[in-house]
Write a protein that binds this DNA or RNA. Structure first.
Length: 272
DNA sequence: AGCGGAACCTGTCGGC
DNA sequence: TGCCGACAGGTTCCGC
């Protein structure tokens, strides 16, 4: 479900409220997100720990713990973190409750159970985190870097931008939106992107991500913020989910194609 | 090495 | 009304 702006929105809200709070108890209603880790071991690694900060890397959420350790969460399609005051009964899709000293509870819920939760000693332990590419909102993400990275690569642009090992945090919605604004076809091989066009991708990646962040992300069906509010960027989408609607630039209908088993929306007449 | 496809899960929606 | 297939913000694994 969530891409960088949605995860960042959640992380900011959690980081405003959780630091200093201690985990008093962990209740697991369904252990799917824990992978092979047993409920008991998961709980033992967390109880008594204090949350010092909440950060993001790509689409991963990192809860730093004291005196040591790191809780790493990935929401995949439908995961959510909600902060609630003393909830009484677990909701249908609640998977884990982290009861905090002082009365509030951090709820992890996940309709499809594709999300993951893992406790590590440190960040370097996670193969998934180690694989991640450049942070698009960091100083390392430059037009020059992008030009170089796209070279000698026949992968279609859509795939290349979705690959977390290249740029960490982009997903299906934002890649469609970025390519529309950059006027480039999602089918174009990465190595065919010209210098000026790479600058366009760089510029529009930053623009789209920043605008989405200001809107607190995109809510298509069920993305919710920590306080259950929705994001607002769906009001600014130009192509995602707009199959058949007139292109905002040329009025020809937006098309939907399938790449990597995922929907891609674009305007074949504007995006070459 | 690199690709497509399946798998992981549950729910909703549209067509017949 | 009911059944069936397609689809959903993501990642990983397996086989060719």
């Amino acid at each position: 479900m969530p891409e960088l702006p949605e995860v960042e929105t959640i992380v900011r809200e959690l980081d405003a409220q959780l630091p200093g709070q201690q985990i008093e108890a962990v209740q697991v209603f369904r252990n799917t997100p824990l992978g092979r880790t047993s409920t008991t071991v998961f709980s033992q690694k967390l109880v008594g720990k204090k949350i010092t900060s909440v950060k993001r890397r790509g689409k991963f959420i990192l809860f730093h713990l004291a005196p040591s350790g790191l809780l790493v969460g990935h929401l995949r399609m439908t995961g959510k973190f909600i902060l609630a005051q003393a909830p009484k009964n677990p909701g249908k899709h609640h998977r884990v409750w982290f009861k905090l000293k002082g009365g509030s509870t951090l709820i992890y819920e996940d309709l499809r159970c594709l999300g993951t939760l893992e406790v590590l000693d440190n960040q370097a332990q996670s193969a998934s985190l180690n694989r991640l590419g450049v942070e698009p909102l960091s100083p390392e993400f430059t037009a020059a870097w992008l030009k170089q990275a796209l070279k000698n690569n026949r992968t279609p642009l859509k795939h290349w931008l979705m690959n977390q090992g290249n740029i960490a945090g982009l997903g299906n919605i934002y890649v469609s939106e970025i390519l529309f604004r950059a006027r480039l076809s999602p089918l174009k091989p990465a190595e065919k992107v010209r210098s000026k066009q790479a600058e366009g991708i760089h510029l529009h990646t930053l623009e789209v991500l920043k605008a989405a962040l200001i809107s607190n992300g995109t809510t298509i069906s069920d993305f919710r913020r920590v306080d259950d509010k929705t994001g607002e960027f769906q009001n600014f989408l130009q192509v995602y989910g707009k199959e058949g609607s007139p292109c905002t630039a040329c009025t020809k209908p937006i098309q939907r194609i399938v790449q990597q088993q995922r929907s891609t929306f674009y305007c074949p007449s504007c995006q070459k």
